[in-house]
């Protein structure tokens, strides 16, 4: 096979494209700009660490099941760890969102980074909601019976039935985590490709 043939292969073209946009030094950089040395920049990573804990404890809960998390001490502990990881996740994500909003972090061709963050946030709210209605206790019964009227009023009740525990559990442990994790990965890759948004002072004025 000639070198021209090799260059025409889709694998070769894809590799050139990926390494062109994302060379190894951008994937795992050894330095960051000086302006990143501020506490406001740690909340994205905090959110990802909390998400990892949510997923990890979710795996354990899925393996052992409701009987275990309702009746055993260790089950209660892991269940609580799952809940409090979610609390930290949203706490850090909202501060991350505020920080990026006031930095106008969509500047410099970063609109897609911002939008993947927005959609991840909305997906996470749905994931948390389906988690609350999947607890299999009186709390989840109360939340689902209260929520059904609101959901039905939007017209979504015909395909998204909050009183259907099986459906809510599948959304909670399969569909929404999958979307949230994929979007988070895309979000991080975009941050690596475009870099962390600089402060307003560092941005050159736009040409008229």
């Amino acid at each position: 096979m000639s070198s021209a043939d090799i260059e025409r292969q889709w694998t070769t073209r894809l590799r050139h494209r990926v390494t062109g946009h994302l060379p190894p030094e951008k994937v795992l950089p050894d330095t960051q700009p000086a302006y990143v040395a501020s506490w406001i920049y740690v909340f994205g990573v905090t959110t990802m660490v909390a998400l990892s804990l949510v997923i990890l404890t979710g795996f354990v809960l899925a393996i052992r099941g409701p009987q275990w998390w309702h009746t055993s001490n260790v089950g209660h502990y892991v269940n609580s760890l799952h809940l409090w990881s979610v609390e930290v996740f949203f706490f850090a994500m909202v501060i991350h969102l505020w920080g990026k909003f006031f930095m106008a972090a969509w500047r410099g061709r970063r609109a897609l980074t911002w939008m993947t963050g927005v959609v991840t946030f909305l997906t996470s709210i749905a994931a948390a909601f389906t988690g609350y209605v999947s607890q299999t206790n009186f709390d989840s019964q109360w939340i689902s019976t209260q929520a059904k009227d609101g959901i039905n009023a939007t017209g979504a009740g015909s395909i998204f039935n909050v009183l259907n525990l099986g459906q809510m559990l599948m959304w909670h442990i399969v569909l929404l985590p999958l979307v949230a994790v994929i979007l988070t990965a895309v979000h991080v890759v975009l941050v690596r490709v475009r870099g962390v948004v600089p402060p307003f002072d560092d941005t050159p004025p736009e040409k008229p």
Partner: peptide, 9 residues
């Protein structure tokens, strides 16, 4: 959250 946000700045 507001306190932590201001402290982070």
């Amino acid at each position: 959250m507001i306190i932590v946000f201001v402290a982070a700045l």
